[in-house]
Design a protein around this nucleic acid. Structure first.
Lengths: 114, 114
DNA sequence: TTTATTGATTACCTTTTGGTAACTGATTAC
DNA sequence: GTAATCAGTTACCAAAAGGTAATCAATAAA
């Protein structure tokens, strides 16, 4: 048997990578949860997450908006206000977050001793 | 209401981050699945994943071993062989991978049209 | 008039990550 | 003797990510 048969692992890995690209990274989930909790305005979100810079927040909000996990509404008040909120699609992440949390808690026990 | 009450989102985020640190990144899951499928030796794993460099593989295997997701066994044959295998702990990732895959598939539909 | 706030953008720099190629010592095949 | 394979390591360089600070126009308060 010279050559190995390979399972089609790409049909699993591609969507897994999609998910990790969308919610992975240092700030994405932090920002999502801040907005989820009710922080609506740029500065409000910025102040709610220590060490998060303006530049990175602006970029991450764009990414999240492109993935329909954040909606950006322009409010035409005296000073133009921008309102960020989570979407119906964001709520579908609940299960993902819980699964990652549960595995992480179990893993921590495994690694740092029972 | 000047100050907001904040939920304890850290009790969720810390274990979620743990999980993402362990299986996130460009190569970790790819390597894990390659070994899972039966690739046992360093060069064998390296060749099974296009574009993966020796240096990165060596580093990632160390990380995965530190997290008990890969076991490294030295076989004292004529040329010393090293055998990599997945562990019982690796198998507990099945559920996580499936959850990420399912969300990713659903997300793809959402973003790239119904 | 000066200062502060709003939601950002830009230039610049540092840190992290990743990739290339050469090389290690041991062994086996030619 | 020469070449190749094993499991890596090392030095060097390039790309990506991330942080800092200044700046923007609009408005409102002091």
């Amino acid at each position: 048997m010279e050559k190995k048969e390979h399972k089609d692992c790409m049909s699993v890995l591609v969507p897994v990578r999609d998910t990790l690209d969308v919610i992975g990274g240092k700030w994405k989930l932090l920002i999502l949860i801040s907005v989820w909790e009710g922080n609506k305005y740029f500065r409000e979100i910025e102040r709610s997450i220590p060490k998060l810079s303006t530049k990175v927040l602006a970029k991450e909000l764009k990414d999240l908006e492109a993935n329909k996990l954040i909606s950006r509404k322009v409010i035409d008040d005296y000073p133009v206000r921008i309102e960020y909120t989570v979407t119906k699609h964001t709520k579908t992440l609940q299960n993902v977050i819980e699964t990652l949390r549960d595995w992480g808690m179990n893993h921590r026990k495994k690694i740092l001793g029972k």
